[in-house]
Amino acid sequence: MFDPTIYDNLKVVFEGAMYDMDLDDFVQIIQRTDRVELATMSRSFGMEAVRKQGGQVIGRILLTASLADLAAELLSQSGEQPGCGLELTFIFPIQDMERDCALAAKQMIDIWGDKVSIAQSIHMEYGKQPVKLENHLTVQFLRKLDERQIDDIPSLLEHFLLSLERLDQHFATE
């Protein structure tokens, strides 16, 4: 019989919880990816959503597991902690790079605390006028997740939704 891995268990819970949020009219799922990278034997699962109440900010949840994570789990390697990586990305337009990036970082720290790493990259299409800047803000969890955090997923998704709401309030365009 197949024994699901940490990644499989977390993926099922995240996927179900995200679809529940869609059914409850909080978000609209706009993208779902489920990949196995054969070159590195890694796996990733992602979902993208926007708030149904006029949301424009795209939020992405990405769960990852490497070959090292799988080996540590299946082989019960001592000294290795099996688990999955989790990162959230929020994509939204900005006008003033310095001001808007500082505001977005402050909002994410207020919501997620200091147990995460926050990175922002600014994207634009060369040659297109007027210049439109798009922020890709990533919240990365500094520790691996495993089944002990399954009960935390509803709270994590509430924070995800709050992040979408706050970013929509400040950065959504008319």
Rank of each mutant, 00 (worst) to 15 (best):
I109V: 15
E87H: 12
Q95M: 09
Q107A: 15
W112N: 05
P93T: 06
D100P: 03
F90N: 03
F90Q: 07
W112Q: 14
M97Y: 09
T89P: 04
D110Y: 14
S117D: 13
K106F: 00
P93D: 07
G113E: 14
Q107G: 02
G113W: 08
E98R: 09
Q107M: 11
A105G: 13
M97E: 03
Q107S: 12
K115H: 05
G113I: 08
T89H: 10
I94C: 01
D96S: 08
D114V: 09
L103P: 00
I94D: 01
D114W: 00
D114Q: 12
C101G: 00
L88D: 06
F90M: 00
D96G: 07
A119W: 00
A105T: 01
I91N: 12
I91H: 02
G113Q: 11
C101M: 05
P93G: 08
M97R: 10
Q120I: 09
A102W: 01
Q107F: 02
M108A: 05
C101H: 02
Q95G: 07
K106Y: 05
A102V: 04
S117A: 08
M97F: 02
Q95L: 09
K106G: 11
Q95T: 03
T89L: 05
E87Q: 04
D114P: 07
I91L: 14
M108D: 03
I94K: 01
E87A: 12
F92R: 00
A119K: 15
I118E: 07
I118D: 01
M108C: 03
M108P: 01
L88Q: 05
Q107W: 06
T89I: 07
S117C: 11
A102K: 13
D110M: 08
V116Q: 09
Q107K: 10
I109F: 13
D100N: 05
G113L: 10
I109K: 15
L88W: 14
F90G: 03
I109T: 10
F92G: 03
L103T: 15
W112K: 08
T89G: 04
Q107N: 06
L103I: 05
V116R: 05
L103F: 14
I118Y: 06
A119N: 08
L103W: 05
D96L: 08
A102E: 10
M108E: 06
I109R: 15
S117N: 11
Q107V: 13
I94Q: 05
P93A: 10
L103Y: 04
S117V: 11
E87N: 15
Q95C: 01
K115S: 09
P93F: 00
R99V: 09
D110T: 14
F90A: 12
K115F: 10
A119R: 07
D100E: 09
I91P: 01
I91M: 14
A102L: 13
G113Y: 14
M108T: 11
E98L: 13
I111Y: 06
Q95A: 13
D110A: 03
E87T: 04
T89E: 14
A102H: 07
E87K: 01
